[in-house]
């Protein structure tokens, strides 16, 4: 469910997997491997479609949720005009599901990107400098990790008040420790590689070493972790929305749409069906792509988790 637990590489990677490859050929290899595997291919396709929808929906069909209402066609079953039917106040469910894609992906991307940047940076610093800094960071992370994701997110939202920003923040915070551990583990294993040491002995600054030598090796892990994390993030933000703690009305958010549909489950099940399917398909897409990417970027890890 959570971004943390979705990082399968958290257990640390074998050092021999971290050989630096000539980067272009590595990415080319990876690409070939990605589209060769059926997981990766399907995932890539689904995610591409979803991304296209998320990006182009607002451009092709500008949608203003605040004026969308037509009580005269409230709660109509799916038809040719409204293929997913209409909701409680006569909004086209298909249109809202489509625009909900943008909303969900904005939340997911924002929290994944911010989370990845933060966790990678912190993990690199911890792993590179070691000693006191490392211990302090590790203890803090341990504490953060001791709070289960959804309860922690709910508590954060209770403090900040519900809404888009608090959702992003809550999910970001919840996901940091997992990513941080991966970054730290990889950094640790790279520390003593020859070229890092030689670069250090040549007087390169820590920043230089971290950015030029360590970070490039981390990229593939970050990408795989982030992709696999998206699914969890979307599920968590939908759960927050469903509980009324996430997106606020009239935003077309999938979890909120399901919550709004609950009283009508028997009479108009489609109201809850389509947003739920949208969540599922999106999460499946990202999970498949994540699996594919993991296999592609790091063959030694394939088959694990």
């Amino acid at each position: 469910m959570s971004a943390t637990s979705a990082s399968p590489i958290a257990s640390g990677a074998p050092a021999e997997a971290l050989r630096t490859l000539e980067s272009r050929s590595m990415w080319q290899d990876a690409w070939h491997r990605l589209i060769r595997g059926s997981n990766g291919r399907i995932g890539l396709f689904v995610v591409t479609v979803i991304l296209l929808i998320a990006i182009f929906a607002p451009i092709v069909d500008p949608y203003d949720a605040s004026t969308d209402m037509n009580l005269s066609i409230a709660r109509q079953p799916p038809s040719l005009q409204h293929i997913f039917g209409t909701d409680r106040i006569g909004r086209d469910v298909f249109r809202r599901v489509i625009h909900g894609t943008t909303y969900s992906l904005v939340v997911a991307m924002a929290s994944i990107i911010v989370g990845s940047v933060l966790s990678t940076a912190v993990g690199m610093v911890a792993g590179y400098f070691g000693g006191l800094i490392d211990s302090v960071i590790l203890r803090v992370m341990e504490l953060m990790q001791a709070f289960p994701a959804i309860p922690l997110a709910i508590a954060i939202v209770a403090i900040l008040g519900p809404g888009l920003m608090s959702t992003v923040l809550a999910i970001t915070v919840v996901g940091i420790p997992g990513g941080m551990r991966v970054a730290r583990a990889v950094t640790l294993s790279l520390q003593n590689l020859e070229y890092v040491e030689s670069s250090r002995s040549l007087g390169a600054s820590s920043t230089h070493i971290l950015v030029r030598h360590i970070f490039p090796n981390l990229v593939s892990f970050v990408i795989v972790g982030a992709t696999l994390g998206v699914g969890g993030v979307i599920l968590t933000s939908a759960a927050l929305g469903f509980l009324g703690l996430g997106a606020q009305p009239p935003a077309p958010e999938w979890g909120v749409m399901i919550a709004d549909a609950v009283p009508f489950l028997r009479q108009s099940p489609y109201l809850a069906l389509f947003p739920g399917l949208a969540i599922m398909v999106t999460v499946i897409g990202f999970n498949l792509l994540g699996d594919g990417l993991r296999d592609a970027l790091d063959p030694t890890l394939s088959g694990v988790a």
Partner: peptide, 26 residues
């Protein structure tokens, strides 16, 4: 009976005359 949806409906009408409502609750 359905306060959120009613609020959404009211603010959708109001948006058409230029009054933009931020829906809030606690």
């Amino acid at each position: 009976p359905d306060s959120k949806a009613i609020a959404e409906a009211i603010s959708a009408d109001l948006a058409k005359i230029g009054i933009k409502c931020n829906l809030k609750t606690e």
